[in-house]
Amino acid sequence: MISDRHAPSRQPYGTAYEQMLEKVRYEGAYPTRERADEAVCLVLAGLGRQLTGDERVDLARCLPPEAARVLTAQIPDPQPLTGWAFVKDLAARTGASLATTRWDTGSVFCAVAAYAGADLITRILHELPTGYGLLFGRAELTQAA
């Protein structure tokens, strides 16, 4: 069971959040809605520690209120993590394997991207260190030296 002790406790959900959980449950092939909720809370709390500025505010506006609260309840880290370090940090917080945590991250980010839209995700990726593009299901191309 995955849990992040820094994630807020959950209350009854609104319809939009229920739909988000169903999308994450489908994308992640999770057996229960509770498992999808755990993944959403873990990954959005982690993203909340990485994202700052207008992108953070704009993303929170796009998400269902329950998801936005998880994202914005976190204090951003002064030194953002790369995409791979982000996954390793989440795995260390929960004791889950890197593969499971990577799966959770991709499943949640797929739903987040659906709410946020391509333009906002592009802005977010420009603000974060390298490695998040792949987590959002996008190729990361680098320029040749």
Rank of each mutant, 00 (worst) to 15 (best):
residue 139 A to K: 03
residue 48 G to T: 02
residue 23 K to G: 00
residue 18 E to V: 09
residue 87 V to E: 06
residue 22 E to L: 04
residue 100 T to I: 11
residue 84 W to Y: 12
residue 132 Y to H: 06
residue 76 P to R: 08
residue 53 G to T: 13
residue 17 Y to M: 14
residue 15 T to Y: 13
residue 72 T to E: 11
residue 47 L to D: 03
residue 95 G to V: 09
residue 57 V to M: 05
residue 28 G to P: 02
residue 71 L to Y: 14
residue 92 A to H: 13
residue 79 Q to S: 06
residue 108 V to D: 01
residue 61 R to H: 08
residue 101 T to D: 04
residue 12 P to S: 12
residue 79 Q to K: 14
residue 7 A to R: 07
residue 28 G to C: 09
residue 60 A to D: 05
residue 27 E to G: 02
residue 113 A to K: 12
residue 107 S to G: 07
residue 20 M to D: 07
residue 11 Q to I: 03
residue 144 A to N: 02
residue 88 K to V: 11
residue 73 A to H: 10
residue 141 L to T: 02
residue 13 Y to I: 05
residue 7 A to W: 03
residue 10 R to F: 08
residue 43 V to L: 02
residue 6 H to I: 08
residue 2 I to T: 06
residue 51 L to D: 01
residue 19 Q to L: 15
residue 140 E to M: 04
residue 145 A to G: 01
residue 51 L to F: 08
residue 109 F to A: 11
residue 39 A to V: 04
residue 59 L to F: 13
residue 86 F to V: 09
residue 78 P to M: 10
residue 41 C to A: 10
residue 4 D to S: 07
residue 114 A to W: 14
residue 96 A to M: 08
residue 60 A to F: 04
residue 21 L to R: 14
residue 3 S to N: 07
residue 143 Q to L: 10
residue 98 L to Y: 13
residue 64 P to E: 11
residue 57 V to K: 08
residue 89 D to P: 00
residue 39 A to D: 01
residue 38 E to V: 09
residue 9 S to Q: 14
residue 29 A to P: 00
residue 139 A to F: 05
residue 133 G to C: 08
residue 134 L to P: 02
residue 68 A to V: 04
